[in-house]
Design a protein around this nucleic acid. Sequence first.
DNA 1: GTCTATAGAATGATAGAC
DNA 2: GTCTATCATTCTATAGAC
Lengths: 194, 194
Amino acid sequence: MARKQGSHADITGPRLREAALRLFARHGFAAVSMRQIAAEVGVQAGALYLYTPDKQALLFDLMRDHLEDLLADWAPPEAPPLMQLESFVRHHIRYHLDRPDLVFIAYMELRNLDPANFAVIEGLRRDYETRLEAILRRGRAAGVFDVADTKLATMALIAMLTGVTTWYREGGRLDRATVEALYWDMARKAVAAA
Amino acid sequence: MARKQGSHADITGPRLREAALRLFARHGFAAVSMRQIAAEVGVQAGALYLYTPDKQALLFDLMRDHLEDLLADWAPPEAPPLMQLESFVRHHIRYHLDRPDLVFIAYMELRNLDPANFAVIEGLRRDYETRLEAILRRGRAAGVFDVADTKLATMALIAMLTGVTTWYREGGRLDRATVEALYWDMARKAVAAA
DNA sequence: GTCTATAGAATGATAGAC
DNA sequence: GTCTATCATTCTATAGAC
């Protein structure tokens, strides 16, 4: 059992991604070495290159998959703008509480992406922001939102909601349902017409 | 002029801090080498160690000075809670728009601090958050704020406001006064009693 | 598929000349 | 006070044995 040899392609791949995610989130992409990741996976550094072309692709794949999941996981319901906003806000909080590490690196490690990769990730992020802005626009047109600038309000709301990952801890003082409800309350009031 | 020698202690020190700040903000602490910083300053790498004991101290000093400035620069005025909140929000936006790089690294590079340094920075950050929470508590007691949980509201507001640094660009579509006013409007509504 | 071994480059920090 | 030169590590990535 001391020697670890043989084929484990089916499990090493996912384990590599999990280890990279955890270490990148904890220490930052640039501060983590391929050796550290390999140690976490339980293989030698050289073996990682069977599953990823390089370290950069490891980061990019994590971020792209995360943002594509985020976009695929939610679409605005056919409903009045206020209900659409509630759906967006509650989904955003839930999704972010479920995947704190992914959210964290998708936000913190943008600087470490190659220019081409950065453009892809920024495009996906913009798609997500555009969805919220569309809700705010519709609501303003309908007179239910009082938002002087929909772009600024979009950025302000997303920053407020995403910030939950910086302080929320599982098993803490507030449970998830309460957190979700309180953020929805603040978001609603921040953009509501008088 | 090809050879750069002689005494420049008075200017090299500040220039080192400026260069480190700019590079850390742009590429991240771990991704920046002492050689890069030295090149930016216009000296050799070895010369940097006349002005800082090591790379870690460079980061810590920037973050500590920034947070101490932030705390020294503002104190709650003797005024009703709503006016205190307005003062806090407007100062926060102004301060953050004035020092985007410092704000950015103070937020992004926490993971790269030694444990002892991290504790100091976290303490300063908590002091700042406590000031906002005190305003919210007073306002809630006075019946002018409707905040179910002051701690969550504090984190939500600070995240919303600090987020301005992620999108605001000098000379962009909105000027600083407008940005400040719009954030104040959203913050006020988010916590105001009906 | 994983291993050992290593190439080739870069890193943080120091020593000693000037 | 800054320089050149260098130490001792560390890094990403590859080559070839098994």
